[in-house]
Amino acid sequence: MREILQVRDLEKIYGGRGSVTKALNGISFDVDKGEYVGVMGASGSGKTTLLNCISTIDNATSGSIHIENVDITTLRSGQLSDFRCRKLGFIFQDYNLLDTLTAFENIALALTIAKVSTRDVTRRVRVIAENLGIADILNKYPIQMSGGQRQRVASARAIVTNPALVLADEPTGALDSKSSQALLESFRAMVKELQSTILMVTHDPFSASYADRILFIRDGRLFTELIRGRDSRRVFFDKIMEVMTVLGGEAA
């Protein structure tokens, strides 16, 4: 099987009594193993809601989400947290590192939560840190790091458990262009060398141009998708800009 993620007819309805918001309106798509997929759409189009449903932080109203052939919409809360720490990795916009822990400890925590054998922890953290170029800041606290370094530590934390799927919500949102670029390069490296699968929400066409495929969402539905194929990043960037123009002025 090649598909890691299968989303089918997903609906999410917020609220009740009077004001009802259909944040997701029957969206369906697949993501293959080793794919780097971007999700774009106007603000309020349902990107974060989609990610929260896939990441089991939020419950879908109807439809199904299969991750490695397990329908996560049917899991109970105990199974969910187990599933979350074994199969999923998260990267948040605002890093979300624990400020009381060093980089090493932040990354190690993801392993110890997943009950990885204590003998392997140190080695695995070092390998990942080497890969993401943060080996020399492992003993620093988040407050002593730059934004880009923090986000790379957060990325290391997300992939150190070898998750089936890495979910990132605007990971470059709080970074300057240079740090963004470095982070996006390391995402590419994660996909290429570690066979990670990444689903990344972004409103920035530059960030999106690093992906293999872009899903465009409008009003909680799949509007269109764009596959990079053999295009260079420049060409792909231009195509993304075109779709964004079609999508409407504030396709941010």
């Binding site: 947290s81 979350r84 999923l88 934390r157």
Partner: peptide, 12 residues
């Protein structure tokens, strides 16, 4: 902090 740990998959 606890909320974040929960998101990372630490059970209740």
């Amino acid at each position: 902090r606890y909320k974040l740990l929960g998101k990372l998959g630490a059970p209740a």
